[in-house]
Amino acid sequence: MKRVASMAIVMALPWAAPALAQSPLAIVQTCYVCHGPDARGAAPIAPLAGLPKDHLARQMADFKADRRPGTIMNRIAKSYTDEQIGLIAETLAAMK
């Protein structure tokens, strides 16, 4: 039964309307709740704007995989796909 169900999902996918992706800026704007407007930081919460993209992406990936200990970012980072993390990092890195 399970196999039939999953096959049906796989087969249905090509015909499904392509899901519109979230705007990366919209995701980044949710960071401001704790990291402050334009992610400039509210000490001791880290400023994020303008940091190197690779650094930001690595921190998020490390939080997600529990390689970096944290209080809350581990829980939050697990909500995002690797692709979303890349877009978040890119958007934050481009901010001044």
Partner: peptide, 26 residues
């Protein structure tokens, strides 16, 4: 753990307030 999550989260509580009021009214 030894990182002291409760104390840290008390500090982040205060920082959250500063951040969100700036993001809402600032």
């Amino acid at each position: 753990t030894s990182m002291g999550e409760r104390k840290l989260e008390a500090e982040y509580t205060a920082a959250w307030y500063q951040a969100i009021v700036a993001d809402s009214w600032g």
